[in-house]
Design a protein around this nucleic acid. Structure first.
Lengths: 154, 154
DNA sequence: AGGCCTAAGTTCCTTAACGGAACGCACCGT
DNA sequence: ACGGTGCGTTCCGTTAAGGAACTTAGGCCT
């Protein structure tokens, strides 16, 4: 959705940004996560222009992040719900949110709190190594080309 | 860096996007993470316009994600290195990358592989609950207003 | 039946950001 | 003195965002 096309970069970050990297999309997904599904509700919650919202919703549906779902036959009305792909993407929003809480919230404290229904505790997201379970920090990671690395730009 | 200012939304996702939500910034941070620090190297690696790169680097320095660091006195030359704040932000790029590997890589496989130097294994990032350690899924999380929630839009 | 309401978009217009190419400038080595 | 390197600026054409008004389609009320 931006001017330069990231979709053919051999980088999963770039490809993710291609799908949801334009600034409104993560907020739309966040809304979807907390139960906002309808056009007008998104528009009111975000203050986004209706034109841009239409474009974003269409794009997210095309890319299988949201699905258009009829919630009324007469009159014909539909809303937008997260797909499994979109729900997994919304999980990473918690990681983003945790960083924002830590570095941008200031004295006022976090704007939102998260309760993990599974354990019942107020919590936040941590990024951990899938192999050893330790916190994963970029300085402890070595990046090497993978099988899909052909046109690697860097 | 976009038209609508996200910085005063009471949402840590919006505030994070305000700092690094414009599409090039995450890629610049990714580059910084793998050791690309100089202007021309960023420019060549990304194919970004020099003008926009200048703006992004300045913005990321202003927001304490990168710091300008002299690597030569004569001639006066500087490059851009991640601050601790920026390094923590780069950690969430692994979570984004994991999603991209899973949903956008296709048959070719992941463009990049990550080895966790701490445990020595090829790995990927997981998002886990800081309290119970289980995988954190958005559908298991209940969102409630926090202390800094005054002008909550939604 | 007429008029108003809601939901979900379109259309039109202005303004800001991007993208690309060219240019600038300080220093360096030869 | 001359070309090369590193790091930007400047200029200019194109595209996307923002905002407000308008549209369409059906339902509800009286």
């Amino acid at each position: 959705m931006q001017r330069t096309d990231f979709s053919d970069m051999a980088c999963s970050i770039a490809r993710t940004l291609h799908i949801a990297g334009e600034p409104w999309s993560p907020l739309i997904i966040r809304n979807a996560m907390v139960g906002i599904t309808r056009f007008d509700d998104h528009q009111r919650a975000l203050g986004i222009s209706r034109k841009v919202l239409t474009q974003r919703l269409d794009w997210l549906v095309e890319n299988d992040i949201l699905e258009r779902r009829a919630y009324s036959e007469h009159p014909p009305r539909h809303d937008y719900a997260l797909t499994p792909k979109g729900r997994e993407l919304s999980d990473v929003l918690f990681a983003i949110s945790a960083w924002g809480d830590r570095w941008t919230a200031g004295d006022a404290g976090a704007p939102a709190l998260f309760r993990h229904k599974t354990c019942g505790e107020l919590t936040h997201a941590e990024i951990r190594c899938a192999e050893c379970g330790e916190l994963l920090h970029s300085q402890d990671v070595e990046v090497t080309p993978g099988p899909g690395a052909e046109p690697l730009p860097a």
